[in-house]
Each structure stands twice: as structure tokens, then as C-alpha cells.
Design a protein around this nucleic acid. Structure first.
Lengths: 235, 235
DNA sequence: CTCACTTTGTGCATCGGTTCACAAAGGGAC
DNA sequence: GTCCCTTTGTGAACCGATGCACAAAGTGAG
């Protein structure tokens, strides 16, 4: 009984689905550790914190890997999702900017866990160049292009100050990198075909503050009624 | 000419809009520093990296704050967005878990910048309790409830190991917190009405890897043709 | 004042994503 | 084999968000 592949898998998995696959993968790994052999969409959905219909539709984009009346084989599904996400290969990651955040990232265990390997640390500050962090030598930013080439880096993490981020981004793009994870609080402009993902702590906090304000407003009897603005503002 | 408020502002700004307001705010602050008095939706949209129609629709949810033929008054718009996001008040934030990441967050400047103040650091490890980080004393997690109450903390940042996150979340929720920023790689379950935002480094990397794989697949002539799975997998 | 020009605010078509609800498929008992 | 139970995979309705395109509103020149 050879399993047929993917009438449903022409090309193009919805972006929203891709963003959830890592979540399913994590939940499945937990289940595999606990020795579960199969899991239903309902159980997996609960573990991942999503609706079960959504989960099934997501998985159906990868192919038809479940068994009706039974569920999904945990190990097999782990393999399929891993392969789809490209985690069966090894990705070399370079971290640029070894300040507090860069250091934290370099030492972050979960980073390395699945398929990713921190292959280089770079910084512009001669004070930190040469330091040994998480078993790696911090190299000078001048070496950027050479290091990327030599170590086969394909994903770059930007943890530089905001002012330096665009400049570094230009250089890594010129060096052939097409995947960037940006922690600097700036909107980077890059050519078509380069993927940027942005993690912005202060934006997350501001979104929380918005909702928190709404909640406390509601408690104290609606928002400030007459929403005047202070005279500090000159129009 | 007193400006009328918000026929368009009944209540309820779309979530997608809320998520972009901080972006606009950052772009506007940059413009204010450079001394610009007014800005068109087109220019602001470019600076924030969005479509100008979207920008105008977003701003229209706050009220009608532009002037046709002219644009938006930079300072006035900064004030309005800040007020809407709740940044005109001061938010006390507690960081739980003072490992590499917690330290980085405590020292992160952009954190404090607008309206947010790190008011407490907590950890379970007696080794780090008592340390002084970013001008704050690290307190023991046993003090959690007391510290939250005493310092008026309303937002909690979780930077604990995955295994501890749910337990801490339960405690802070019990202590009345309704806004949590979670860096631990777990799906937290919390009661209705509690807002959780999740930042997950490894998920971001996995999404990048997915797209990167697609790109390199395309270069090397399509995805691995016969997608067999290794015999390692037992069905 | 009128006219030409700029830029906002929004109606409308469209799109992607979510959810419901159910037919189809498989397993197991007998 | 038949029947019943479980669970998948998906059609279809729905919902929110996006982007086009334009009327309405304001500025400034003459």
C-alpha cells in the first residue's frame, strides 16, 4: 500500500498555513516524546491551540496523510511537515550585531534545535570582535561577505542598532542572501525576491497596551468622553 | 475651527489596523525629528512600507484627522495615534525570567522609549535573585503577586523556560494581569479576556526556511521529483 | 470670485482565510 | 461478508482585509 502523493499539493501552500506548521510540528514532537503513535485532528488542534477544521485543511495542503477513523501517524506527520518546511536540511545562520539581543539569540537553545545552526557572529565594535560567545568567535563586519560565502550561510539575523540595519541588509543582499530575520526597529527596503521577517518587541507591547487600555476603559465606564487634545499641540 | 470627533470612530478598530499603528507612529516620530510639519498619506505610507490607500483607511478609523489637499499634521497625528494606543499613560512592565533573553529585554532601550517602563525583574533561580540588572534588583518569583500589586504592573513579559511558562502565566492571571507577552515556545492556555501575544524566534526561522527552500528548489529545477519518504518511517 | 490642482476619505469589487457541516473512507465487531 | 462508529478531507457560506478608483474637500493663483 504505497501512499499516493498530493493531488492537493500542486504548489503554493497558503501563507497562513505555513505560519502554523511550526506550531503543529512542536506539538507533534511533544507527543512523539510521550510515545503517542497516532493523533486525531481534534487532539492535535487542541495542543496547538487552533480549530480542528483549520488544522485538517492546513494538513490537506501537504497531501492526504491521515487515515479516516484513526487519525494521523505522529512520526510520519513529523517527517512530512519537517520536509515541507525544509528542516530535513541544515541551515547555516549568521547573526549580525552582538549586543544584548544578539548574545541572547546566540545562546538561545531552541534556535539550534531543529535544522538551524548558528554559523557566525559578526559585529562592528572592535571591543567585542574576537570575543568568544556560545562557542563562536565574533568576527568583524568587514568579513561579512567572506564569512557568508565560506560558511554557506543562507539566513541572516539582524540584531544591530536601527541606524545600521539598512546598510547591513544591503550588503547581505548583495552577497546573495534572500532570507532575513530583522530585530531592528526599522522598515527595511530590499529588492523583490528577498524575504524579510520582522520581530519588533516594542510593537508587540504597543498592541498589548491598546487592548489593555480598552479593557480598563470599559471598567471605568467608557473612554474619556470629550476627547479633547491638550493645547500642547499646535495646529 | 474646533475639529469634530469621529462619526467613524464608534468603537472597534480592526485588529489589522491596530497592528500597523505603531509602525505609523515610528515613521511619524522620525519625521517630527527631521522637522516636518505635515505629511501626505503617500509619503507616510512609503516610510511605513504600506499601501497609501490602506494607510488612509487605517487613519480614518481613528477619526478624520487629515486636511484634503494638504495631508496630515505630523505632531497632531502623533498625539492622536499615541492616545489611541494608550501611550499617553505610563505602563509598568514586569519581566519574568532573567536568562539571556530576559536580560536582553531588560536592557533593550526601545522597550522603555514610549510609555513603557520596566518596573520589575523576577526569576526562580536563587543564583540570579539579588543581581542588579538595568538598574533593577532581581526579585524572587515567590514575590510575584506582591510585586505586581505593589508596583502597579499591568503587562507581564514571559521569558522563562518553556516548562515554567504555563505555571507563571496561571499565577499572573490569578493576580489580575490581562496582558501577556510570551517569549516561551509553548501554547499558553488562559481564560477569556486575557490577551496573549507570542514572539517565537524559532517559528520565524522555520517560516524563512520554508520560503528559502522554495526559492532554491526553483533554481535547481523544481522540487525533488519523486517525493518518497525514507524507510526510517514506519507506517 | 472662479479655476486648476492636490490630497483625503470611502464605496465597491476582490481576495484570502476561517468555520461549519457533511459525504466519503477506513476500522473493527460480529 | 454487513453494519456501525470514528475521523478525515472538502464544498460552500461567511468574514475581514486589501486595493482601486473617484467624488468631496480643501489650497492657492489670478
Amino acid at each position: 500500500m504505497i501512499r499516493r502523493l498530493s493531488q492537493a499539493r500542486e504548489r503554493g501552500i497558503p501563507e497562513a498555513t505555513v505560519a502554523r506548521l511550526p506550531l503543529y510540528l512542536r506539538a507533534l514532537n511533544g507527543m512523539a516524546e510521550r510515545g503517542l503513535a497516532t493523533v486525531s485532528s481534534e487532539d492535535l488542534a487542541v495542543a496547538a491551540g487552533v480549530n480542528s477544521a483549520k488544522l485538517r485543511k492546513d494538513l490537506s495542503h501537504l497531501g492526504s496523510y491521515g487515515t479516516r477513523g484513526v487519525g494521523y501517524d505522529v512520526e510520519y506527520l513529523i517527517y512530512q511537515i519537517s520536509r515541507e518546511l525544509g528542516l530535513t536540511q541544515d541551515w547555516a545562520v549568521a547573526i549580525v550585531g552582538v549586543g544584548n539581543l544578539g548574545r541572547a539569540l546566540a545562546n538561545y537553545g531552541g534556535f539550534v534545535s531543529r535544522g538551524f545552526r548558528v554559523a557566525a557572529l559578526l559585529d562592528a565594535d572592535p571591543e567585542v570582535v574576537g570575543d568568544r560567545i556560545a562557542g563562536l568567535n565574533v568576527e568583524h563586519i568587514d568579513e561579512l561577505e567572506a564569512v557568508i560565502r565560506r560558511r554557506g550561510v543562507s539566513i541572516v539575523v539582524l540584531a544591530t542598532p536601527a541606524a545600521a540595519a539598512q546598510q547591513v541588509a544591503d550588503r547581505v543582499v548583495a552577497a546573495g542572501i534572500t532570507s532575513i530575520l530583522n530585530f531592528a526597529p526599522v522598515v527595511l527596503s530590499v529588492p523583490e525576491g528577498v524575504d524579510i521577517r520582522k520581530v519588533d518587541l516594542s510593537i508587540e507591547l504597543q498592541i498589548l497596551a491598546f487592548h489593555e487600555q480598552r479593557k480598563t476603559d470599559r471598567m471605568t465606564g467608557g473612554p474619556a468622553m470629550a476627547e479633547e487634545w491638550p493645547e500642547a499641540v499646535d495646529l
